[in-house]
């Protein structure tokens, strides 16, 4: 059974189509990444899955239930990492997490969660005395404390410094090993590559690509690119067999090609290409 099923999801505000006929599913134990530029519809989609927003049309099931009319029992099975909004602060890290643990039937151990998010040295500090990055780790801890089957993370590392981001990724990898299903939105492509099993790219409310992270955009968009300089001119050739091509190239020009490079387009290039193609009106098939 899929942990998350989305079929033909649309969300329309007055005269703005925020999400347009989006379909995907997430298997249990999988980490699914929704990628897209700001304002593309990532947050709207994840908030519909979390039950914070209503939808205009389409079918949505999370753990077999419709989040729009979800029960308290359903809420105990999902975890939401909220964007720190300044609502916490007066109580200490430990007091706050302990309190939230008491809301769930099967909470994780408070000290283990504090340890997992790397706040053991700060457990007795009032949350407002922590740095922004540390406060966000409290948000992560509160998303985890109920021991959820599905965890939602909406742009979890926006504003993190690189070191904190890497530490955060480690926390997520630990959860992946436990078999937790994770749904993540991000606009950082390295994050998607580091954490995601599968993912989709959403642009202007439409899902323009869907699949394994390493295969997003299709085989063609990942064709290796050979570039060199010949007679002072920059040349580029895309080919499935770059070594063969380079052999013939050096035979042809009779010398070592100048500034020779072979590049396999990474997710970022594929992604930018996808967005550009979509915005130029080109339809992309998955």
């Amino acid at each position: 059974m899929s942990a998350i099923e989305v079929v033909g999801l649309s969300k329309r505000y007055k005269d703005f189509q925020a999400v347009d006929d989006v379909s995907f599913s997430v298997s249990r134990g999988e980490t699914f990444v929704l990628l897209g530029p700001n304002g593309a519809g990532k947050t709207t989609t994840i908030e519909i899955l979390e039950g914070f927003r209503t939808r205009t049309s389409g079918e949505v099931k999370v753990l077999g239930q419709d989040p729009q009319s979800a029960s308290r029992a359903f809420r105990a099975r999902i975890g939401i990492v909220q964007q720190s909004a300044g609502d916490l602060g007066r109580l200490s890290v430990r007091d706050t997490i302990t309190h939230f643990a008491s809301l769930y039937p099967n909470p994780r151990k408070v000290e283990e969660v504090i340890e997992a998010v790397g706040l053991h040295g700060k457990a007795s500090e009032p949350i407002k005395k922590l740095s922004g990055g540390q406060q966000h780790r409290v948000d992560v801890a509160l998303g985890l404390i109920g021991n959820p089957e599905v965890l939602f993370l909406d742009e979890p590392t926006t504003g993190f410094d690189p070191e904190v981001r890497r530490a955060f990724w480690e926390v997520i990898r630990g959860l992946q090993q436990e078999g937790m299903t994770i749904m993540l939105t991000t606009h950082y492509l390295d994050e998607a590559e580091e954490l995601g099993h599968r993912g989709g790219v959403i642009v202007d409310g439409k899902l323009v690509a869907l699949g394994k992270i390493a295969e997003i955009g299709g085989r063609d968009s990942r064709k290796p690119e050979v570039s060199w300089v010949e007679a002072g001119v920059q040349r580029i050739e895309r080919t499935d067999s770059p070594s063969l091509f380079i052999g013939e190239l050096s035979k042809r020009i009779g010398t070592e090609p100048e500034n020779l490079q072979v590049k396999v387009p990474n997710l970022e290039q594929v992604y930018l290409q996808l967005i550009a193609e979509h915005r130029n009106g080109v339809k992309i098939e998955d």
Binding site: F52, Q83, S84, G86, F100, L142
Partner: peptide, 17 residues
């Protein structure tokens, strides 16, 4: 304040009644 600072939103994501 709790309506606007995220407290109620955070609680609504938990199983509290």
């Amino acid at each position: 304040i709790e309506k606007h600072d995220g407290t109620l939103r955070r609680l609504s994501g938990s199983p509290i009644s």
